[in-house]
Every structure is written in C-alpha cells, then in structure tokens.
Design a protein around this nucleic acid. Structure first.
Length: 984
RNA sequence: GCGGCUGUGGCGAAAUUGGCAUACGCGGUGGGCUUAAAAUCCACUGGGGUUUUCCCCGUUGUCGGUUCGAGUCCGACCAGCCGCACCA
C-alpha cells in the first residue's frame, strides 16, 4: 500500500507528456493546410464548429460513425492529405506577466485545460496555445524603480508564469509560444499599421485627449472608466490635453461591429453583447440645420472659422464618406461639422417633435459660441458665465446628477419647419462629443429639456399625444393643470407630465395626426428634400487613440521629413526596433525622443535628414490579433500563413475574464474585420464562442496586489498538488460564478482524491490475491500488474480505453454478475452519462465532480469483498472513474491508469463510450401523489404501464387510506417518474 | 434612467424537458479504530412526533397567475451585484 504523493506523481507524468509531445496539435493537418495554401478557403465554414453547447454537443466525432472513426473534415475532402481529425481551437486570454501565477490565472487556465483535454479524448485535433502580453506600463515603471531594463523584469515574470503553468500541467503546445515584446512579434504590429495607414484607417490628428497623470500617457476612450478615471488607476482622474496623436478608425466599422454581434448570440454571453451594443451606442435620427438670425458681421466670421478646421493632417482616407472624420473628444469636436455657415446643426432622434422645440441648446464648448456671443447686449456677462461653465464641466464627476445650468446667448435661430424664431441657449447637459454638440429643446417630450425649461421658464408646447386620446379632452386636462402651475405663462400648455413615448403628432402643421414613426420618416425625408436636414445615424463609439508617450511598446513606424512630410517606414525596413538603452524617467515626453540615434534617420524618400515618430502603440494593439499568430508562430515572412489561419479559425472557444468585455474584445473584433478587408483572412469574427469565468475572491474582494489578499497558485500546488488545486477550483463553484477562496473546501478536494487513490491502490493488491477465484483469465500474470483486458494490438493514440469499454453491451468479466455487481456497473454508466453531458453540453464541472464522488461512495459502499463486488468488476468501474477524472486531474489519472495495469499512457485513450444497456434500471421507485402531495412510494418494474401502477397504488395500504371515500377524478402518470391521483 | 445578471439549509452549491427540492462538498454532532492525537471509516445534520426501516408539517426573496403539479413558465414588486449613463 502506498500513499498518494502528488508531487512525485505530477513530476513523473509531466515529464512523460513532454517526452511524448502529447499536447502538440497534429503536424499533418498543418501540412495539409500548407499544401492547399493556394486553394480558396470557401469550404472552411463547413468545419464542425458551429454548435450549441459550450463544448459543442453536436461535435462528437464518434456520433455519426459507428466504427468510431472521427468524422472527416469537410474542408479537407477536396484535397490530399486529409486531416484525420476535426479541428478545435480552444484559447485562454494571454496573461500580462506582472508576477507569479495567481488563483485567477489558475482558474482560467484550468477551465481551458479541461476543455482541451476533453476535446482531445473526443478525437479532435486540438490547438491550445499560450503566450505573453509582455509590453506595458508596469514593466516600465518597475524598470524605473529598479534602474533596470523593462525586459529584465518582464522576462523574469514570464519565466515564473511559465514554471507555474508547467507545474499545473496545463496542456499547451509550447512550440507556438509568443511574447509580444519581441521584435519577431511586434514587427507585425508595425506591418499592420502601415497597411492601415495606406487605407486611411490609421491617421494622425491633434485633439484633446485623455491623459492619465500617473501613467504619464494618453488613454483611449475605452480606458477611461467610471466617468473619468484611469482604468489602471481607478482613483486617478483623467485630465484633458491637446496632443497630436495617432488614431485607428474604429468608427469606420461601427455598423459592422454592432451588426455582427447578432451572429455571436448563443455563442457569447448576453452580458458581453449588451455591453458592446451599449458602448457602440447607435442612434438613428436626423440632422437639422437651423438658420441663425442675421446679426451684422457674424456670418463671415463663422465662415472663416469653418475653413480653418477642416481636414486633419495625415488623414488621406478621410475624404471617403464612410471613413469620415469623427472628432474624438471634448473641445475640438463640432468644429468640422457644425453644418453650413450661419447655421446651427442639431441631431435628433425625434424630428417629429420639432414643432415643439422652444430653444436650441449648445454645449458650453461649442465652437460657434464665440461668434454667437460677440456683439450681443450682455456679451461680457455671457462670456463670464461660459468660462465658468467650461471650468466646472471638466471636473464634474457625477455629470448625470449635476443640476441643469445654462444661459441665453441673446441670439435666435429659425425653425426651418415653421419659421418660428427660437432662442439659442447654452446648457451644461449638452455634450459636444455626442451628435453635433447642439440640440433642439423639446421640453414636452424630453425629461432633460423639460427640467431645463422649467428652471429657465421656456415654453413647453405639446406636439405628441398618446395614440387614441382625443385632442379635445387632453386640452381640457391641460388647461386645468395650467391654472395650478404658475410657471406656465406662455404659449400653449404645460403637459401633465413629460410624454417621451411614441404617439400621434399634434400641433405640427401638416404632420398633425401622423403616428410618431410615420412622422419621423416623413419629416426627415421632407427636411432632406427641402435642403435643411439629413437622415443620419450617429454612434457613441470613438476612434481608437493608439499613441502612447512611453517606451515599452511597439514603435510607430513613420518618419517625418522636412521636405516630404510624413513618410511611412518602408516594409523592408521593418521592424523598427526599440533602442536598447532608453532613459526612463516616467516624466515628460516619450523616452524614445531622448535617444538621438533612434530619432535621427534619413528620409526613406529623399535621403535627407528626418526624425522618427517617438510614440509607441497602445498595448491593446498587441492583443488584438495575437491569436492568429499562434497558427503560425514562427513565420518570418508574414504575420501568418492565411491557409493555416483558414484551417484553425474561428476560435471555437475563447475563455477569459469579464473585465475585457469591452476593451480587448472590441479591439480584436475590429482588427479581425480590418484583416478580413485586407484579404488576409476569411472570418469576420475572431471567436465563435466566448466564456467569461468568474473572479476568485478572498474576503469578498477580488484578489489584488494592492489589497494584499493574493493566494499564490504555486503555494497551493506545493501544499496539495496541482490536481487537488485544479479539482478544487472546478468543484467549488460553477465556472461563470465568482469563487470565494476557502481553505476548508480545498481540504475536501484533497480528501476525495486520496479516497480514490486508496481505492485503486487496494484494488490492485486485492485483485492479485483474488485472481484465481475470479476466472481463469488472469492466471500467470504478474501479481502487481493485472493484464489489461482486450487490448487488441498496439494502437498508439487510438481508442484503447474506448475499445475495451465501448463494446460493453455486457461487462467484460466472463462470469455471471451478481446483483451487487450489476448495481455498481449501472451506477457507473449512469454517472458516465451525466458526466459526459456536463462536459459536452454545459460546463457544469462542479456537478460532474459531484457525480463522480457519488460513484466513488458507491464503490466504498459495495465493500466488503466477501459479499459482493469482485476486484475484476471493481476494476472496470475504477477505470471509468479514472477516465472521467482525466481532464480535471490529469496527473493522478495517469498514475491510476498505470496502477490499474495499463502500460500505455492515458493520453492515448479516448473518452469511454456510454452503455445504455448497462445503465438501464430494472426497477424504479416512483412517488405517488394525491392531489399533488406525496403520499407514498411504489417499487415498480421499469417502464410499467399506467394500469399496472394504478393497480399497485390502489392495493397499497397507506395510499388506499388517502383514497378512501373519495372519488378519483383524474390520473396523471409519467412513466418511471410519478403517479398523481386527483380526487375530490 | 437604460441594459445585463443573481436571490435555494450554518456555508459553497445541486435539481437535462415543469414531475420526490436541498444531490455533492464544507462545517457541526455522535460513534468505530487509537494509550492519545492526526489520519481514516460509519451514522445523523429543515421543524415536529408516545407508531422512528414510520408518520405529520413547512420550505427555493415577496405577491399574484397558468397547471393535476412550479425553484423552473408568465406578470408585478423587493433586495443585491456588474456595465453604461444628461447619448438628444
């Protein structure tokens, strides 16, 4: 008898796996892809990856072929050689190497590893890679602190994470490892950047941007969280700065990014889809131009302002309508899109309410304001007020709850629909960055406008009524309300409340009587026809600002020449490598700017003196396409071979934290679409399925360095072993839920594995004692190693376990089975059925483990030997237990498999086949309900008919007692489930 | 305000389709083994009972509905968590 020694076992099997290259995806498949490189990729979509369950229930390669041979890949049928197995790409988000492996990582990778291992056992060619998101600020900050190079810190952390992953036995194909800070990788960032530059997707402009004073760099919109804080420093308010920087035109893909979310429903969590929809923020409406009432001199000034702020400096593609320039942040927007000179452009989704507009309201930062205010009666007072509003708007944290504020400019505009003269106001609630930075205020039909109108005494004319209301009756009620409300001095009425829904237009000239939807359509068309408006869709999404004034990132590959202007670095000169000895201070301009050797270059065009761009790229660029690189990680000619990507993509299952629901997942979706439009790939979305696992908490809070509540994964592995750790994280909570760390619970997992180990250990000892009594089969075998049953010939990587277990229409043991043995085998196959379903169609690892625990309890209960289950039979059951545990506790499973007498590694064995025959119950106990309450139980033969069961029920004493003197009204019988008698 | 999610024992949680609620684990109590402890194995662990291999009652955040039957479906609410937020 031996003890379970996880440290020794885990070391032993990790070595074996490595020697046998168990986790490498099949080379022959890639060769096939190689050979078909020139062929079109069109048939790819037929690959068996479009499925329902998280693991793809329809993907079982055994399901459609009685021989057990995996389904052929339809794409490969057209050519030779034929990939033997269908592909499966499972991926966990690559980590930022900031320290050692923690529980959050470990949980993420354990889930992915279970999936990868299950899929391998199910006969798939599995791609399961890992890499390092190794550019980024923490490395640079650590380098400044320790006076070293960021690479030192980064590589130390990578080495530690790598060791940690090895320690847990995660089944990665390490041939494909990537590290984004290596020139072999980031040169392709630069290459993609040049492609985008050619197409006008990358452009540069000066704009007001988000600046984090702690990061000392610019942030993208997506990196500003909680209404104005840095995503990395959640206590640090983001400042506004005017900086010239590079953008990627994510807005050119707004519509697609939104529409394609529909293709992800079912595969992606509803929550993530909703968050992205929300972020992209589509509004369909119309722009309308309001003429400004003539005031001497104003018009020409406005016109000249227009000219000044047209095209941004290098936006070559910006002339294209689809790629139209979208100003990014507060103060500069609007300048290029305030419409025709002398007019104010507003955006509205409710053009049908335009007859109810009682003012135009501009954002305090609207570029037309200076012209508008000049020459007005109280210009000085207005400008003072404006300055004050601009001041406060920068610092406002809780914009949504701030009180409405504003003032009248002294100017008027003309409503193009009815010629009415309405005042132009400034309001603090109007945002320059959304729509056109100006709105028409329709107080009767908009909450905010109403609040504003009430505060400043603007009229509140009603122009929409609830459908079905007669005009007359509502007028009466409004008049009553009028008398009660002293503020309602002017024009028509004060509505009883703000009515923001659709209804029927009233008081709207020729449009009165139209339903809101019809009115919107007709009025927008009319505005367009009459030249004072345009149907328009606006998005909340902004272009992605990628310039960072830091060292540890990808250099942006452009050169500035006094003569030729901005010149892209020629492709042949890539990569632009980071200087090796940077001066890192964390302050001021980009560290690259301080290195003359880096900065001063010859112009690629004229050969004259020129300067390099000194900003680096946002590190989210690195992670936007890394999963494509895994398909062809060592390619030095291209980012990847399109044929290989065509074979593996889309990712069948992507797994990561919800924190990336917007940032990474939006950027990488964008990148995929750009790559598709460059003709490099065929897929429009990177991942068919996304799984967001819950966080690991301690004391109710997410583990973090700053809170000091991190539990190191390696410590846990040292104490209990990797398998116990893996089992614990899978068992303690369903994978999508947050998991509260508990030392007591991990003891439970440890106890269970010990229980299993002792069982197998004892069984191999006992079976050697027992072998003569069972059947002649094992005679002459070594006592410690019973012969594996029915291993027909050597079949490496083939269905060994499945072959022996699959044909078990009856048990393999030749002698007749006792009732107890039948019972145990039945329980085993019932467990197998449920565990298989838990792995395949839903990710209920916790209940799968619970099932296996029950089975193990049943084996214990089937003791003692003398009156029941013989070692031969028990061995068969233990083999099933071992195979079911294999994806979750792979090291222990290998060891148990060997202890059970198998010399071939468990990695060569397929998932066991379930036997309906063995799982079938002979007898079932069904509850008998009287009027829905359980009043008794009956043991009946499985599949018994209603009549039989009813007769038995009526014969049963206790049940008959409840039936006595009552009339049987109805009988509901669900076969093998329940009998319900309705009596009265 | 908008969108999404979650509410089940002392705790983590189960419950494929509407069909015996609380499986499995933790914790707790009692017992076997042991000089003792640890480990381990067994039993009990919603409430109640003078029929204890038996019986009764209650119960899945709240209120209502559909149904022979609801943790599950429908409607309204309450509480908590997450994301976005004066988005025109």
């Amino acid at each position: 008898m031996a003890d379970y020694n996880p440290q020794a076992i885990e070391k032993k099997w990790q070595k074996r796996w490595e020697e046998n290259r168990v986790f490498e995806s099949e080379a022959e498949v890639e060769e096939a892809a190689e050979k078909s490189k020139s062929a079109p990729l069109a048939s790819k979509g037929a690959a068996p990856s479009q499925t329902q369950g998280p693991l793809g229930e329809t993907q079982d390669p055994h399901a459609k072929s009685a021989s057990g041979a995996p389904l052929e890949n339809p794409r490969a049928q057209a050519r030779v050689p034929v990939p033997r197995k269908p592909k499966y790409y499972v991926l966990e988000m690559l980590p930022y190497p900031s320290g050692t492996l923690h529980m959050g990582h470990m949980r993420n990778y354990t889930i992915g590893d279970v999936v990868a291992r299950v899929k391998r056992m199910r006969g798939f060619n599995v791609l399961h890679p890992m890499g390092w998101d190794s550019f980024g600020l923490p490395a640079e900050n650590a380098a400044i602190k320790n006076h070293t190079h960021p690479r030192v810190w980064t590589n130390k952390n990578i080495a530690e994470l790598f060791q940690g992953m090895k320690r847990f036995g995660f089944s990665y194909d390490w041939r494909r490892e990537i590290s984004t800070c290596e020139p072999e990788y980031y040169r392709w960032n630069q290459w993609f950047f040049l492609k985008m530059l050619e197409r006008g997707i990358a452009y540069k402009k000066k704009s007001r941007v988000n600046w984090c004073p702690k990061c000392c760099t610019v942030l993208a919109n997506e990196q500003v969280v909680n209404g104005g804080y840095c995503w990395r420093h959640e206590d640090t308010l983001v400042e506004a700065r005017d900086i010239e920087q590079w953008f990627l035109k994510t807005t050119a893909y707004s519509e697609q990014l939104l529409d394609d979310l529909k293709t992800l429903t079912g595969g992606w969590p509803e929550r993530v889809i909703a968050m992205q929809e929300n972020w992209i923020g589509k509004s369909v409406g119309a722009k309308v131009w309001f003429e400004i009432e003539e005031v001497e001199g104003a018009k020409s000034k406005v016109e000249s302002e227009e000219k000044k702020t047209q095209d941004p400096p290098f936006a070559e593609g910006a002339k294209d309508g689809a790629l139209e320039e979208k100003p990014k942040s507060r103060q500069d927007a609007g300048a290029t899109r305030n419409g025709t000179p002398g007019k104010i452009e507003i955006f509205t989704t409710r053009i049908d309410t335009i007859y109810g507009a009682s003012a135009l309201i501009l954002a305090p930062t609207h570029p037309l304001l200076e012209q508008l205010l000049s020459g007005t009666a109280n210009q000085a007072a207005s400008e003072a007020k404006l300055a004050q509003m601009r001041q406060t708007s920068v610092k406002t944290e809780d914009v949504a709850t701030a009180e409405k504020d504003g003032f009248f400019t002294g100017r008027y505009a003309v409503n193009p629909f009815n010629g009415e003269k309405i005042p132009i106001w400034v309001g603090n609630f109007v945002l320059l960055e959304y729509g056109t930075g100006a709105i028409m205020a329709v107080p009767a039909h908009d909450e905010r406008d109403y609040e504003f109108a009430v505060k400043f005494g603007l009229p509140i004319p009603v122009v929409v009524e609830k459908a079905g209301h007669s005009f007359q009756s509502t007028v009466d009620s409004k008049e009553k309300k009028n008398q009660e409300n002293p503020r309602a001095q002017s024009r028509v009425t004060v509505p009883p409340e703000v009515y923001t829904e659709y209804g029927v237009s009233v008081n709207s000239g020729v449009y009165s009587g139209l339903k809101s939807a019809d009115a919107i359509e007709k009025m927008a068309s009319d505005a367009e026809a009459r030249g004072f408006g345009k149907k328009e869709t606006v998005f909340r999404l902004r272009d992605w600002g990628i310039s960072r004034q830091r060292y540890w990132g990808t250099p942006i590959p452009v050169i500035y020449c006094a003569k030729d202007g901005m010149v892209p670095v020629p492709e042949k000169d890539l990569p632009v490598v980071l200087p090796t000895n940077p001066k890192l201070t964390g302050e001021g301009e980009s560290p690259l700017a301080t290195d003359p050797e880096f900065v001063n270059v010859k112009c690629p065009k004229c050969g004259g003196p020129a300067r390099r761009e000194t900003d680096t790229m946002d590190t989210f660029v690195d992670s936007s396409w890394y999963f494509y690189r895994y398909c062809d990680a060592k390619n030095s000619e291209a980012p990847f071979d399109s044929a290989k990507v065509g074979y593996w993509f889309p990712i069948d299952q992507y797994i990561g934290g919800i924190t990336h629901a917007i940032l990474h997942l939006l950027y990488s979706r964008f990148w995929t679409k750009v790559m598709r439009d460059l003709g490099l790939i065929e897929n429009s979305e990177p991942a068919a399925r996304l799984f967001t696992q819950g966080m690991v908490l301690k004391g109710g809070a997410a583990m973090s360095k700053s809170k000091g509540n991190i539990v190191g994964a390696i410590d846990m592995a040292e104490k209990y072993g990797a398998d116990t750790g893996r089992l614990y994280t899978l068992f303690a909570a369903p994978p999508e839920k947050d998991l509260e760390w508990s030392e007591e619970s991990i003891e439970g997992a440890w106890r269970f594995l010990n229980r299993v180990f002792r069982l197998v250990d004892r069984n191999s000892v006992e079976s050697s004692k027992f072998k003569v009594e069972s059947n002649g089969k094992n005679q002459g075998q070594e006592a410690s190693k019973p012969a594996p049953l029915e291993t027909k010939g050597a079949a490496p990587r083939e269905n060994l376990g499945a072959q022996s277990l699959q044909n078990s229409g009856q048990a393999r043991v030749a002698v007749p089975l006792t009732e107890k043995e039948k019972g145990l085998l039945r329980k085993a196959h019932q467990t197998l059925r449920r565990v298989t379903a838990d792995f395949e169609t839903r990710w209920h690892f916790n209940s799968a483990i619970a099932q296996i625990m029950e089975l193990v309890n049943a084996i214990y209960a089937a003791e003692p030997l003398e009156n029941g289950v013989r070692p031969e039979v028990r061995k068969e059951v233990l083999e099933l237990v071992t195979l079911m545990l294999a994806p979750m506790t792979p090291h222990l499973a290998e060891e148990l498999w060997e202890m059970l007498g198998h010399s071939e590694g468990l990695w060569t064995v397929s998932w066991p086949a379930f036997s309906e025959e063995l799982a079938k119950e002979d007898e079932v106990e069904i509850p008998v309900q009287i009027n829905g309450k359980v009043r008794g139980r009956l043991k009946v033969a499985a599949g018994a008919s209603q009549d039989e069961v009813l007769k038995l029920a009526q014969a049963d004493g206790a049940i008959a007692g409840h039936l006595a003197g009552k009339k049987l009204i109805k009988v509901i019988y669900v076969r093998d489930k329940l009998l319900n008698l309705v009596v009265g």
